[in-house]
């Protein structure tokens, strides 16, 4: 049994008639970015809140390096909740520094670390501004700085990329990967599956409060039948493939049709069908995308 890193074992939680978590177990290793996926209401936020003692559990246990997670252990965790939480009228620098001190940093260390993180995240010039005066993206950066200021051993981030522009996603994504390279555990939830595929080494997918898929991105992408990626000039919806026997349309996006062929189905027959629609510009074998892994897991 794995004892290092964050280990969640048999978590159970019920809200009235709704079962939020049912015997959920998985682990988050240090040095790895772990994507935490699931449809809305799957129990991701409840799980993350349980790590921080923000919701009571009906059963199960959570440990960090073999030790039960308590207030002392949580001091070394960083958290970014789904609904962003900052004092609206407090100055940015003061806020990050205060949260650093609450995590056990001295005043001097908190100030120094705050300065470093605000610079790293490109908001050092806003340190004296009130949080409510910042844009959504910059508030998100302040929130991330607050989670990182005490150099935590584990980062738990609920939808850290939501609502960010591509630059913001790149900046925050780079920080997450960098933290993992420093040996820290990173668990983050997201519905942006392309980003998850780019950033994560490991993925956990839950549905209806229970684990449905868990593995590395490579393992999950390689597992299952391969995809045929087909591009045909003038075709946007891949309707030509839907009626082919032994062929399932896995995904259609931007003129690209991804197909799963049943065992025994001849790929040259598919290529011939595509050629009848128009000029075929691409016909290649691909690994599963994370979006396909997700859809197939929670179907």
């Amino acid at each position: 049994m794995v004892t290092s890193g964050l280990v969640l074992s048999g978590l159970r939680r019920r809200f009235g008639d709704l079962v939020a978590l049912r015997d959920l177990s998985f682990d988050v290793a240090g040095g790895v970015v772990t994507g935490f996926l699931g449809p809305n209401g799957a129990g991701k936020t409840t799980t993350m809140r349980a790590v921080f003692g923000l919701t009571d559990l009906d059963g199960g246990s959570i440990t960090w390096n073999g030790r039960p997670v308590d207030a002392t252990v949580r001091q070394r965790f960083g958290y970014m909740p789904e609904e962003r939480g900052l004092y609206p009228t407090m100055r940015v620098g003061d806020q990050v520094e205060y949260l650093g001190q609450l995590h056990g940093l001295s005043s001097l260390d908190a100030r120094r670390s705050t300065q470093q993180w605000l610079e790293r995240l490109g908001i050092a010039d806003r340190a004296q501004d009130r949080v409510e005066d910042l844009s959504h993206g910059n508030q998100q950066r302040v929130q991330l700085a607050s989670a990182l200021v005490h150099e935590p051993d584990l980062l738990v981030l609920d939808e850290p990329l939501a609502g960010l522009d591509p630059t913001g996603i790149d900046d925050i994504g780079a920080v997450l990967v960098e933290q993992a390279r420093l040996g820290r555990g990173v668990l983050f939830s997201s519905h942006q599956l392309d980003q998850v595929e780019d950033l994560c080494e490991q993925v956990v997918i839950i549905d209806h409060g229970q684990l449905v898929v868990r593995g590395t991105v490579d393992e999950l992408a390689s597992a299952g039948p391969p995809r045929w990626r087909v591009r045909v000039d003038g075709d946007r919806d891949g309707s030509w493939a839907a009626s082919l026997p032994g062929v399932t349309v896995s995904e259609v996006r931007g003129g690209e049709v991804r197909l799963v062929l049943d065992p025994g189905t001849d790929s040259s027959a598919v290529l011939a069908a595509a050629s009848r629609v128009g000029r075929v510009t691409e016909f290649s074998l691909q690994r599963r995308r994370m979006s396909e892994v997700f859809r197939e897991a929670v179907r």
Binding site: R49, F52, G53, L54, A71, R74, Q75, F77, Y79, P81, E83, R84, G85, L86, Y87, L99, L102, H103, S146
Partner: peptide, 9 residues
Amino acid sequence: RVIEVLLAT
């Protein structure tokens, strides 16, 4: 919602 960040520690 800052309470959630505070009560995490």
